[in-house]
Design a protein around this nucleic acid. Structure first.
Length: 684
DNA sequence: CTAGGGTTAG
């Protein structure tokens, strides 16, 4: 659980040590927070109540920022303004093109203002260019207000080069102009330049008038840097200026502290908010999720629900992603229902998260349904579904989707290729894999990265082409990474090539000497070859380094409740039945050719426990699951380690004799067992 | 006189 203690003083002390803006550092780049997979154990979902109605229709007008005056323009110009009021931006711009051709129309400030909104609303670069050049050509002299709006129009349409030119050439600038350009720099990821401009602005105005609006933008820049120091510096100044209580600022700070690694400070800021807004809740929940505290995040979400705060599409997107990590079908269903009931059913981000969730948790058809119903899809939506089919061992479908995506004009990115190449690998589609790999830089201008190479190494490994895999590593245009060597090492384990495997292992040790899982893989190589002496020596190095292997465990969710099992676990109330049922199952599958294997792939249990191998945690969880669900209910398991050979064989047969789909997410990948086969193609 | 600010998905 997170701490809620007396933090304010601590935070204030920290802030008092920080002084001026002058030494804001300009360096970048600590590591990005990569999320490891976790499973959860508890917490019942609750239904999400329906809140206010939100029309998703294009016709809604209520929250529109009104143009500055009631329209005094007549003719075409007046019509354009009206269309913009009703958010029909595309039509407004079409009308403007007609106006442009006809020539002799009076276009005044209010019309330009409306056109700016139209361009921003439809993100139309063409529109921006036409509107701007029309204004110049017609000799219209914009006032400071309109100049800032023109600047904003360029910024929001991501035309940063033009925007910067506009800003630099402005005859006059005010705080709004500065904030606008700085906001654009932050949006485009140019954080250092944003800091540079901010400091220039600060000096130019001697800090006067620079308020929470500028600071919330800069705090966003600080969170982009992923270093805590600049953000703390900025926070300190806002405290001294007495503006730290601003809601926008607080939300930005929560996000900044959590993205820069200090969830405690984020919690402090959150606690200090007198009234917690939706964005505040969203930020702190996302923060806990980012730090891997998924259960805490879920708890906070229910607190949010109780507090009566409104939820928005951000809330649901965050929650669905948390569910994807926890693997909680019930919570996710509740969130899905809440999403639809509250009128965000068409939201692209939330739906992409749902596609990811359903496909990760074995419901690829549901994922497909959500996907096909999305009115707007982007590359992330496609990637989620393609990866889903790949993980389900349906590589051909993933390849088909990849082609369909290209036909529909969506540009694939490096994640897309990761998804489709790993799909080819899981389904052993050699030809498609190579064709797509080669098309990456040839047709799509996406440079293959380490993980793409790792996929291809795995693909070669499946066919036993170890020399070619090694050649691929040797010839790759950058320094091979751990992942690539690890893929080769796995290939060596499966194909029992000790010489190359040892080489790969040594490379890996050189790069990551302290990482446990690397040693475990080599240990597995030795074990699978029966080389017990070598295995023991690896084990000793491990001991010397003080690295200990954690016991494996498996989670399973049954009827909205989740349960955890360890190897040989007898702590469960149903233990006796579980073991009896398991013994029956083992007997049954032995008639279908199952023979226990001795070389445990994962030596996660003590030697003497070795004979308990038939009681590995995943088998216990499956036995438990079969006892407590109706026939043909699919089982979903999460295994903290890599599933062992023996269990893999056993589960394949159990799935066959019970006619039950079993999905296991292990430390390496996704296994979907059905009809005596596994989606990983027996390679993991 | 207006305008500029915070949170989400692979």
């Amino acid at each position: 659980m997170w701490k809620k203690s007396k933090p304010h003083r601590r935070l204030l002390n920290k802030l008092n040590k920080v002084d001026t803006l002058a030494e804001l550092p300009m360096h970048l780049k600590p590591p990005h927070n990569t999320l490891e997979f976790t499973a959860y154990k508890g917490l019942k979902p609750r239904p999400v109540p329906k809140q206010s109605k939100i029309e998703l229709d294009g016709e809604k007008v209520e929250d529109f920022d009104k143009p500055r005056k009631s329209s005094s323009s007549s003719g075409l110009a007046g019509q354009i303004e009206k269309l913009v009021v009703y958010k029909r931006f595309k039509e407004a711009l079409e009308l403007f093109e007609i106006l442009e051709c006809e020539g002799d129309h009076e276009v005044g400030g209010s019309t330009y203002d409306a056109l700016v909104n139209a361009c921003i609303g439809s993100r139309s670069i063409r529109g921006v260019k036409r509107v701007f050049s029309f204004m110049i050509k017609s000799g219209f002299e914009p006032d400071q207000y309109l100049r800032n709006r023109m600047l904003l129009m360029h910024v929001k349409c991501k035309m940063m080069i033009d925007a910067r030119y506009l800003f630099d050439e402005m005859p006059e600038r005010n705080l709004v102009s500065w904030n606008t350009i700085i906001g654009g720099l932050v949006d485009s990821g140019d954080y250092v330049e944003a800091f540079r401009l901010f400091i220039t602005m600060w000096e130019e105005y001697s800090g006067l008038g620079v308020g929470c609006r500028s600071f919330s933008t800069m705090i966003r820049a600080a969170s982009g840097l992923e270093v805590i120091y600049p953000g703390r510096q900025l926070h300190s100044i806002t405290v001294k200026m007495g503006i730290a209580g601003d809601v926008f600022l607080s939300c930005a700070l929560i996000d900044m502290y959590s993205k820069c690694g200090s969830i405690d400070d984020a919690q402090c800021v959150f606690d200090s908010m007198p009234t917690k807004t939706t964005v505040g809740w969203n930020s702190i929940i996302a923060g806990y999720a980012l730090h891997g505290y998924s259960e805490e995040a879920l708890t906070l979400y229910y607190e949010m629900l109780d507090s009566g705060a409104k939820m928005d599409h951000f809330t649901f997107s965050i929650i669905i992603r948390i569910c994807a990590r926890l693997g909680s079908l019930e919570h996710a269903k509740q969130a899905h229902a809440g999403l639809v009931r509250n009128g965000f059913g068409l939201d692209m981000v939330a739906n992409s998260a749902l596609v990811d969730f359903y496909s990760k948790w074995g419901r690829i058809e549901d994922a497909r349904n959500v996907f096909e119903k999305m009115p707007l899809k982007n590359v992330i939506s496609w990637n989620a579904l393609i990866a889903g089919y790949g993980n389900h061992g349906r590589g051909m479908e993933a390849v088909r989707l990849f082609h369909r995506m290209n036909c529909e004009g969506v540009m694939p990115n490096h994640v897309t290729f990761l998804a489709v190449l790993s799909a080819c690998s899981y389904s052993n589609l050699q030809d498609y894999g190579w064709e797509i790999f080669e098309s990456m830089s040839r047709d799509h201008k996406v440079k293959p990265r380490a993980m793409h190479y790792a996929c291809m190494i795995e693909l070669l490994g499946r066919e036993g082409h170890l020399d070619e895999a090694f050649a691929l590593i040797s010839d790759c245009p950058f320094k091979p990474t751990v992942n690539m060597w690890a893929a080769l090492l796995t290939a060596c384990r499966v194909n029992q090539n000790l010489v190359l495997g040892k080489l790969a292992a040594e490379k890996i040790y050189g790069m990551e000497p302290e990482k446990l899982s690397n040693y475990v893989v080599l240990l597995n190589v030795y074990n699978s070859l029966g080389k017990s002496e070598e295995a023991a020596s690896v084990f000793n190095t491990l001991r010397k380094k003080g690295l200990r292997m954690l016991p494996a465990c498996t989670w399973i969710e049954i009827k909205k409740q989740s349960y955890v099992f360890h190897s040989g676990d007898k702590s469960h109330a149903q233990a006796k039945e579980i073991y009896e049922n398991l013994d029956k199952l083992m007997l049954k599958i032995s008639k279908h050719g199952y023979a226990p294997e001795n070389n445990t792939l994962l030596p996660d249990v003590d030697k003497q426990e070795g004979r308990l191998q038939s009681y590995h945690s995943e088998k216990l969880a499956i036995s438990f699951g079969l006892l407590n669900t109706q026939e043909s209910t699919p089982l979903h398991l999460v295994q903290s380690h890599r599933i062992c050979n023996d269990c893999h064989n056993a589960v394949k047969l159990i799935a066959m004799v019970t006619n039950c789909k079993i999905v296991v997410r292990d430390a390496s990948r996704f296994h979907r067992f059905q009809d005596g086969k596994c989606s990983c193609g027996d390679y993991w």
